[in-house]
Amino acid sequence: MSSKHKSKENNTSDSILMAVVIIFLIKNTIDLFVFDLLPPVGDNIFWVFISFILILIFYIKRSYIHLCIMLVILLVGILNF
């Protein structure tokens, strides 16, 4: 695997994570200052769904560090259900 391909793959994973962080920040800002977008159960289902999608993406891309981070987030979210 060339270093150019690996660098591009890392940039893609970082871009996906950055997009998720931005979504989290926007959603939390709206929840705090404007109104609740989803009821609490809907919130939990939304974040579990997003976590599953990201786990699959990181597993397919073989980005195991990001995969572990998402697994921890998923486990913490499920324990807080």
Results as ranks from 00 to 15, higher is better:
Ile53Glu: 06
Ile53Gly: 10
Ile57Cys: 10
Pro39Trp: 04
Thr29Val: 07
Tyr64His: 03
Val48Ser: 04
Phe24Asn: 13
Asn44Gly: 12
Ile65Leu: 15
Leu54His: 06
Ser51Met: 12
Trp47Val: 03
Phe52Val: 10
Arg62Val: 15
Pro39Leu: 11
Phe58Ile: 08
Leu56Ala: 12
Leu25Asp: 11
Thr29Glu: 04
Phe52Cys: 09
Leu37Ser: 01
Lys27Glu: 12
Tyr59Thr: 10
Ile57Met: 10
Leu56His: 10
Ile55Phe: 08
Leu38Met: 08
Ile53His: 07
Asp31Ser: 01
Phe33Leu: 07
Ile45Val: 05
Phe49Glu: 11
Phe58Ser: 01
Ile57Pro: 00
Tyr64Glu: 12
Asn44Trp: 12
Pro40Thr: 04
Phe24Met: 13
Gly42Arg: 03
Phe46Thr: 01
Ile50Pro: 04
Leu54Ala: 05
Tyr64Phe: 15
Lys61Tyr: 08
Ile26His: 08
Ile65Gln: 14
Gly42Cys: 00
Leu54Tyr: 11
Ser51Arg: 02
Leu56Trp: 13
Ile45Tyr: 12
Asp36Leu: 02
Phe46His: 02
Val41Gly: 10
Phe46Ala: 08
Phe58Asp: 03
Ser51Gly: 12
Ser51Val: 05
Ile45Thr: 03
Thr29Cys: 02
Val48Cys: 13
Asp36Ser: 06
Pro40Gln: 10
Leu38Ser: 05
Ile26Ala: 08
Ile60Cys: 13
Val41Arg: 15
Ile55Leu: 12
Ile57Ser: 07
Pro40Asn: 02
Leu56Ser: 11
Phe46Pro: 00
Ile57His: 13
Phe58Met: 09
Asp43Arg: 12
Pro40Ala: 03
Tyr64Gly: 05
Gly42Phe: 00
Val34Phe: 11
Val34Ser: 11
Ile65Trp: 15
Val34Arg: 09
Asn28Thr: 09
Arg62Thr: 15
Gly42Ala: 02
Ile53Trp: 10
Asn28Gln: 12
Phe49Val: 14
Tyr59Leu: 14
Asn28Phe: 09
Asp31Met: 00
Phe33Gln: 04
Ile60Tyr: 15
Phe46Leu: 06
Ile65Pro: 06
Leu37Thr: 05
Phe46Arg: 01
Phe58Thr: 07
Val41His: 15
Asn44Pro: 03
Asp36Arg: 07
Leu38Cys: 05
